[in-house]
Computed example of a mutant assay.
Amino acid sequence: MTVEQSIANQQIRKETDTDEVLVQVKNIKKYFPIKGGILKRDIGQVKAVDDVSLEVKKGETLGLVGESGSGKSTLGRVILRLLQPTEGEILFEDNDISLLSNRKLREYRKDMQIVFQDPYASLNSKMSVGELIEEPLLVQTSASKSERKEKAIELLEKVGMRASDRTKYPHEFSGGQRQRISIARALALNPKFIICDEPVSALDVSIQAQVLNLMADLQDEFNLTYLFIAHDLSVVKHISDRVAVMYLGRIAEVAPKKSLYDNPLHPYTTALLSSVPSTDVRHRREKIQLSGDLPSPSDPPSGCVFRTRCPQAYDRCSVERPELKDMGAGHYVACHLYDEAKT
């Protein structure tokens, strides 16, 4: 059974209908300095995230897609303050956490967690599974040893593992099992928001379906909010409520998933969707081959960053950066093609 069939057959997940915003980023930038010369002075900047504004509604799954190097993972780490933003605001439940000290930020850590792409690299191989899951409780709470043990066993069972697995070590498990352990660890402090950074991309297709179904079940049970970062558009389609498309550090399009997949507006989104394999000949798209390579984030094109690969670019695209425009029904696009008049 494919990922798509497994998730489609579940019929448990519901589209979110809340307008309450849990996480909001405003004009976020993350630049990394480029050092050069004998004195290692700054000679340039890598603009990994360049003026991004985005919101994640409570209880929803927002998918974040784009090519490798588009800045998706960097944005996720900035939102969690694992990386300090160069500019901009990060609001969590209307509280600006972008400039908080590590001490003050600690109280928000329990509400925001992350599941990384590679569970083997993110789990300390010298710690047992029980120790890994209990560590957040040890750091953030006053729970006793017996309470931590009980919580670890409960979470292991929630993610489809056995209580006896608590005494084993990460190398004793498969990739899918290690990812389940990572999810259990992320749930230890009862978070409200979890960033899933390519959580199934390293897993076999059959295992992907199991992990995605588990994440959907846990979202319903614990009222979780997800930011789901991925490059697999077929997976994003079935797990997300809304989808944001990112290109070279900027947001190109944001829309409810049905609107985006049925009627993509940005030329980049259209090209991405055309590459998704489909067994339904009625909805198969003509493949669009983009010219050239992804430009360097240290020297992005002027104006619209996609213009060097866009088949519909015109003069204005090279001199003016397009802003996100509201096209109605929650569909936003950053493209001059949708301005009232071309100039």
Rank of each mutant, 00 (worst) to 15 (best):
E150G: 05
I153Q: 11
Q117W: 05
K151M: 13
V211M: 11
V159G: 01
V46H: 07
H171G: 04
N223A: 06
R307M: 00
P297R: 10
V25H: 01
L218A: 11
I207W: 08
Q45D: 12
D299M: 11
L214D: 08
I229N: 03
E87T: 06
A143P: 04
L218N: 06
L294F: 03
I288N: 07
K47F: 12
N95I: 12
L337K: 04
L62T: 02
D17I: 13
G292R: 13
F92S: 05
F228P: 02
V159Y: 00
C196A: 10
Q177E: 12
I251M: 15
S98R: 11
D280L: 13
I183G: 04
P311D: 09
A143H: 03
N9Q: 12
A48E: 15
Y120W: 10
G37T: 07
K126S: 12
L224V: 06
T167F: 13
H266G: 08
A48P: 15
D299V: 10
E4Y: 14
K287W: 03
F32M: 12
S70P: 14
D118W: 01
Q289G: 04
L75F: 02
S240G: 04
K47H: 15
Q24F: 08
R81C: 14
F228C: 02
L212G: 02
S240P: 01
L227E: 09
C335Y: 00
S122R: 05
K104R: 13
H171Y: 10
A209T: 12
Y31L: 13
V205P: 03
P136R: 03
V236D: 06
K104D: 15
A255Q: 09
V254T: 05
R106W: 08
R77G: 12
K126P: 03
Q10L: 15
G249S: 11
R307P: 00
I288A: 12
Q177I: 12
L203R: 10
K47D: 11
H283T: 15
D241W: 04
E55C: 08
G36C: 09
F306T: 00
A121C: 04
D17S: 15
K26F: 10
I181V: 05
V159Q: 01
A186D: 09
H238G: 06
L265H: 10
Q5N: 13
K149L: 11
Q208E: 09
G175M: 08
A186I: 07
H231E: 07
K158W: 06
S125T: 12
L54F: 00
I79G: 05
S101F: 03
T16A: 13
I43Y: 03
E89S: 14
S70M: 13
I28D: 00
K40T: 09
L272R: 01
K104V: 06
H266V: 09
L227Q: 09
Q5L: 14
F116L: 04
P301T: 02
T167E: 15
R180Q: 09
H171Q: 10
G88F: 05
E198T: 04
I12Y: 07
A163L: 06
